[in-house]
Design a protein around this nucleic acid. Structure first.
Lengths: 216, 216
DNA sequence: TTCTTACTGGACTCTCCAGTCCACCATTAT
DNA sequence: ATAATGGTGGACTGGAGAGTCCAGTAAGAA
């Protein structure tokens, strides 16, 4: 008569449908990515998920919880994208390029601006969530880059003053004017080619700016 | 018995109070800068302006009109800030620095993120307004920079491939990670010193990346 | 089978907010 | 003075959307 089973305890009655939960999240993600938080209605989420509104509320406490779950999912996506292949072996330029591509892919191709936008709105309520999101995504990238840059500086490949600032520079160069363009709605979608081009170009300029005087 | 006077025809009755109109705009600007559009209530604007709600609606048709007027005011601010001193005489580095400072001052110190945020939300309704805003502000800066950079390239001071892209790079370097920081709410206010530091640093890195091989 | 929980659809409550109406007072032109 | 318009405060309307309730049905657990 063991009460607590390790595995998810099968309660009596009909179990919740995991597929429904998934489709709710997918629907919400789609909507949160294409419009600001306030404009996403629960009705719309339910309709898009092909689910009744009550089911929404049975799986998630409220709108904010759904949003938070979506954000967390994207955080995970970012984490895996950025901390992808091991970077010890490859030369600096290749390493930076591949991180840049991964970063831009998530940040831009996933059409993050709306999410980011929404985040800043919900900050007033939940600064902790924003912090988590930043730490999991952009913040992690920044740290990883700073580490790489510091290493390259120690090996004499680069001449940087302060690795973290240099990492900011590199990220900025990758992004170029894109976030603004997206925020203003001038751009809808970005092709993979374009992402690669931008990442490579940003890396190149970065390396030129921070080239060690001795090299090159 | 001329009907149409050139000057604003003095209609019968009590004239509108220009000061009230101004205080409404000031109040609205303050609010729109500190929170997203949807959260700014007309009640709040009226209260902050020290004016009744009806007066709001007598001066402006509706909430969107007030917002648009605020945005236009900031556009003007940006324009004058950026197209400030004549730039023919001064050396390139100084020119870029002063533009950078002006740009950052408006974009960051005026705590634009919320406005930008709001803009992107209202895009769905009024793409034209967003375009106007961009053209008056960031777009104008970009063009001016591209022109300057193209000139410097012709004179052999810089080695750039495509002036507009280089302008994007420069702006990105000025901004560093700030827009993101602001969007996430990690930063509230930025001091003038910090702006100057960032502008100078960005310019320096830009010049290093695009230095003409021949120069020193 | 029977019990328990999940899901549906729709009606419903609550709250918030943009925008309006009204009765009254204030200010200016003629 | 008188007409015409501006401003005030408060009550009001209308709409939208979050979250709830309920009666009925579906589906796994015991």
């Amino acid at each position: 008569m063991v009460m607590a089973e390790a595995s998810p305890r099968a309660r009596a009655g009909r179990p919740k449908d995991a597929a429904k939960r998934a489709s709710i999240l997918a629907a919400a993600q789609g909507l949160f990515r294409s419009q600001p938080y306030e404009m996403v209605t629960m009705e719309a989420v339910a309709a898009r998920a092909g689910v009744s509104k009550m089911t929404l509320y049975s799986h998630f406490a409220d709108k904010e919880t759904i949003f938070e779950t979506v954000v967390r999912a994207i955080s995970d996506e970012m984490m895996t994208a950025v901390s992808g292949p091991d970077r010890a072996a490859a030369p600096l330029r290749e390493t930076l390029n591949s991180i840049g591509i991964a970063f831009l892919t998530v940040v831009l191709d996933a059409s993050m601006p709306m999410i980011r936008h929404t985040l800043s709105a919900s900050l007033h309520k939940d600064q902790a969530l924003a912090r988590r999101f930043y730490d999991a995504g952009p913040g992690r990238t920044r740290s990883a880059l700073a580490e790489i840059i510091a290493g390259a500086t120690e090996r004499g490949e680069l001449a940087t003053d302060f690795a973290e600032w240099a990492a900011d520079d590199l990220i900025s160069l990758w992004e170029g004017g894109l976030p603004a363009q997206l925020a203003f709605g001038f751009i809808e979608q970005i092709e993979a080619d374009e992402i690669v081009r931008r990442a490579k170009r940003g890396t190149e300029i970065f390396l030129r700016a921070y080239a060690h005087p001795g090299n090159g």
